[in-house]
C-alpha cells in the first residue's frame, strides 16, 4: 500500500518506479530528477503522514471506547480534536502560547495538548457527577465542541483571506504535502503513547467490565482513565497540529478491528491502529485522485453513515450488551 500510494495522482508514476526510487534513496544515491521529487518529497511524505495519523487515531479511538465504555467514542466526537485544533489555531494565527517561552512547533503542540485535555476533563467530570448514557456523553462532547469551534472561527476571522483558505482546509483535516522535518515530531509522541497504552492495556480491559469490578481486582479506574486520557491527548495534539481535525477514523477502525481480533486491548490497540492507518492512507489517495480534496471530507462522507448505522443498531450489538450488563452490575457507584 505504501508503495502503491505514491504512484497515484495527477503526475503518473508506476509502482515499480516508486520502489526503485525508494530503494535508491535508502542505498544512498538519489536520482534527483522531477519524478524523484514528486515521489520522495511529496507523495511518500504525505503517505507516511497518513499512516502515522491513521495509526494514532485508530489507537486513540480504541482506547477511548474502552475507557469511556462507549462504542461511539472517538477523538472527533468527544471534542478532543476540536480542543486541539483551537490550541493549534491560537498559536498559528495569533502567535499566542499558553505556556510562555515556547516557540514554533513546540508551542503549537503544547497549546493543542492543553486545550485537548479540556473536553476529556469535562466529560470525565460530568460522567462521575451524573449517571449518563452513551449518547449523552457524546452530546456533552459535542456541546464542548460547539464552544471550541466558535472560538476557532472567531480566530479565523482575524486571519486574512489567503491564510483563511489554508486554515479552512486545515480545519477539515488535510494531509496534503508532508515534510520530512515534521515526521519525527509526529512519530515520537505517537510511538511513545502507543507503548504506554499497550502497557496499560490489561488494566483498560478491566475497566471495560465496570468500575466496581476493577476496584475488586485492585485497579484504580480513575487513575487508569486519567493516564490513558493523557496519553490520548498527547497523541492527538501532536497529530492535529499538523493535519487538522480528521474525523471518524478513530470511530470506525476499532469497530472493524474488533470484528477480527475481539475486544482484548492487547490485540485491539495495534490492530485498530493498523486498520486506521490503512483506511486513512486509502482515503488520502482517494482525496488526491479526486483533485486534492481535504482528506477529512472523505472520512466524514464515509464515516457519517457508519456512525448512523452504529447508532441505530446499538441495541443489537454484542459489545453493548456486555457493556450494559456491566453497567447494571455497577449501579451502586463508588464515587
Amino acid at each position: 500500500m505504501l508503495v502503491v500510494s505514491p504512484a497515484l495522482g495527477a503526475y503518473s508514476v508506476s509502482p515499480g518506479e516508486v520502489l526503485d526510487i525508494i530503494i535508491s534513496h535508502l542505498t544512498g544515491n538519489p536520482p534527483g530528477d522531477r519524478t524523484d521529487f514528486v515521489v520522495w518529497d511529496v507523495r511518500l511524505t504525505s503517505s507516511i503522514m497518513a499512516v502515522i495519523t491513521g495509526f494514532a487515531l485508530g489507537v486513540c479511538g480504541s482506547v477511548m471506547q474502552a475507557v469511556m465504555r462507549n462504542p461511539l467514542a472517538d477523538p472527533y466526537t468527544m471534542g478532543v480534536s476540536s480542543g486541539a485544533s483551537l490550541g493549534a489555531v491560537l498559536s498559528l494565527v495569533m502567535g499566542i502560547s499558553i505556556i510562555p517561552g515556547l516557540m514554533g512547533d513546540a508551542s503549537v503542540i503544547a497549546n493543542a495538548f492543553l486545550l485537548s485535555l479540556v473536553p476529556m476533563a469535562v466529560i470525565l467530570f460530568l460522567s462521575i457527577a451524573r449517571k449518563m448514557t452513551d449518547t449523552m456523553m457524546i452530546l456533552c462532547g459535542i456541546g464542548v465542541m460547539y464552544f471550541f469551534s466558535a472560538s476557532t472561527s472567531l480566530l479565523m476571522l482575524a486571519a486574512d483571506p489567503t491564510q483563511m483558505s489554508a486554515v479552512y482546509s486545515w480545519n477539515l483535516g488535510n494531509i496534503g504535502i508532508g515534510y520530512w522535518d515534521n515526521l519525527p515530531t509526529m512519530l515520537v509522541p505517537t510511538a511513545a503513547c502507543t507503548a504506554l497504552l499497550m502497557v496499560f492495556s490489561s488494566r483498560i480491559d478491566v475497566l471495560t467490565s465496570g468500575d466496581n469490578l476493577s476496584h475488586t481486582v485492585g485497579v484504580d479506574p480513575f487513575r487508569v482513565r486519567i493516564l490513558s486520557s493523557l496519553g490520548v491527548s498527547v497523541m492527538i495534539a501532536s497529530i492535529v497540529s499538523f493535519t487538522g481535525t480528521i474525523g471518524f477514523i478513530g470511530l470506525i477502525s476499532p469497530h472493524m478491528a474488533r470484528a477480527f481480533v475481539g475486544s482484548k486491548q492487547v490485540y485491539l490497540i495495534p490492530a485498530s491502529g493498523l486498520v486506521g492507518a490503512v483506511m486513512l492512507l486509502a482515503a488520502n489517495n482517494a482525496a488526491r485522485m479526486l483533485g486534492s480534496l481535504p482528506v477529512g471530507v472523505i472520512t466524514t462522507l464515509v464515516g457519517c453513515p457508519i456512525f448512523f448505522a452504529l447508532l441505530i443498531r446499538q441495541r443489537r450489538s454484542q459489545w453493548i450488551r456486555c457493556h450494559e450488563l456491566a453497567r447494571k452490575s455497577s449501579t451502586i457507584n463508588i464515587y
Binding site: V122, L126, A129, R130, M132, M136, L139, C140, I142, G143, V144, Y146, F147, A150
Partner: peptide
C-alpha cells in the same frame, strides 16, 4: 448556545 446545550443535557 453551546453552554446552554450542555446545561440542558446534564
Amino acid at each position: 448556545g453551546g453552554p446552554l446545550f450542555l446545561y440542558v443535557i446534564i
